[in-house]
Amino acid sequence: MNWLSRFFTSSIGRKLIMSLTGLFLILFLVVHLVGNLQLLNEDDGFSFNTYAYFMTHNGLVKTISFGLYFFIVLHAIQGIVVTIHNRKSRKKNYRQLNFREADFASRNMAVLGLLILAFLFMHMGDFWLKMKMGQLDMVKYDGVNYPVNDLYTRVNTAFSVWWIVVLYVIGQIALFFHLKHGFYSAFQTLGWNHPKYTPIIKGIGLVFSVVVPLGFALIPLYIYFVR
């Protein structure tokens, strides 16, 4: 295994981990968004709560979700390790920096990542943890012969508090910037840079980084202002 561990501890190997885990998380975001948008259905939480039940009880999904937790942790740890190493590569810093390429996102991926991580803790603490600890009410729907957690009501309660909504929106802004650079960056790290296709990847990346966080942000905003 020596060659493998050597590969994954090389600078390109570490970046490959960032890239692949990042791409997996990007995929997860799509699934998560599609599921969450059911919160906007005016059906007293039927579709959302049964969906949540499915996601927490289906064996395959559960297995994948362990993978997801692992990848989130790996992405975060690897990101921190890489960033610390990068900071150490220039111990004596410049008095003045005035670079031509000054893309905010690319220069602040670590800070953005940490923001997102903090957001994630809050987010999971708010919903996932409460559900796992059994602090949620149970609800039974017609046609479903078992009770499910009423996550829907919990979400509505949470998003009726203005500062939680604000924190969620901030979290999504951080996600927007993180994705704006991360999407293209993942492909660049994999070596997918091509005069014809890179502009397309960058275009898709930009659309993705706007649409997905916007979709997520829409939920608390809708609940706060409309419900």
Binding site: S11, I12, K15, V82, N86, R100, H181
Partner: peptide, 20 residues
């Protein structure tokens, strides 16, 4: 790449400041 790592340079995070 092995030598580059050994020399203690940092990792690329695709900022593209180098190209600019």
């Amino acid at each position: 790449v092995a030598q580059m790592n050994k020399e203690g340079f940092g990792n690329c995070s695709n900022i593209s400041a180098c190209e600019a």
